[in-house]
């Protein structure tokens, strides 16, 4: 009986979408809500009046709703990946995919919202600034490359590590 062919794609795709969603939540929670350095449409509606703050809050909410949707779809994909015996249940692949997804979020959101459409900038009171490029370089490109490197480090993991039905857990109950 031949060994199943390892397929990392479902796990990488699920982890990346989860990373995109969780990265979006980091952006929204840390930059929009806690630090309040920008909001979704803060370049268009400067949050210097109560009405503009409330308008931005609505669009921030919509952004969070879409981000939540990405997270839920990513979770569903992860669940399905867990049911496929050919998918190696690799922690390194999942962690790498999460980091890569966070990088994808920062890169795409940064290019579209900060640089092309100018919906907002990382530090709104500075307008277009070095912070936008730092966000793109470190949060986007660097995270993407680090994530990809972590995924590559798990490329030797095999489907034998998969907790498919009938597979007994290893020492300490770990697969």
């Amino acid at each position: 009986m031949s060994a199943p062919q390892a397929n990392f794609r479902p796990l990488v795709a699920a982890g990346t979408l989860l990373g995109i969603g969780l990265g979006g939540f980091v952006d929204g929670i840390v930059l929009h809500q806690i630090l309040q350095v920008h909001n979704m449409l803060s370049a268009k509606y400067p949050p210097d009046t109560l009405v503009n703050v409330e308008i931005n809050m609505v669009w921030d909410g919509l952004f969070h709703a879409f981000t939540w949707l990405m997270t839920v779809i990513g979770l569903a994909m992860l669940w399905r990946a867990g049911q496929k015996p050919e998918v190696p249940w690799s922690t390194r692949t999942l962690i790498g995919s999460l980091v890569m997804g966070w990088g994808v979020f920062n890169l795409v959101e940064g290019v579209i919202d900060h640089h092309i459409l100018h919906l907002h900038h990382v530090i709104e009171r500075l307008g277009a600034s070095a912070a936008d490029w730092l966000f793109l370089g470190v949060g986007g490109v660097l995270f993407l490359l680090v994530g990809r490197a972590i995924i590559a480090s798990g490329s030797r993991d095999t489907p034998a590590s998969h907790p498919s039905p009938g597979t007994a857990p290893g020492p300490g109950g770990r697969y």
Partner: peptide, 13 residues
């Protein structure tokens, strides 16, 4: 414009 990045994320996935 608020929704724009999200179809791109799904496309990448």
């Amino acid at each position: 414009v608020t929704a724009l990045p999200f179809p791109i994320f799904l496309g990448i996935t």
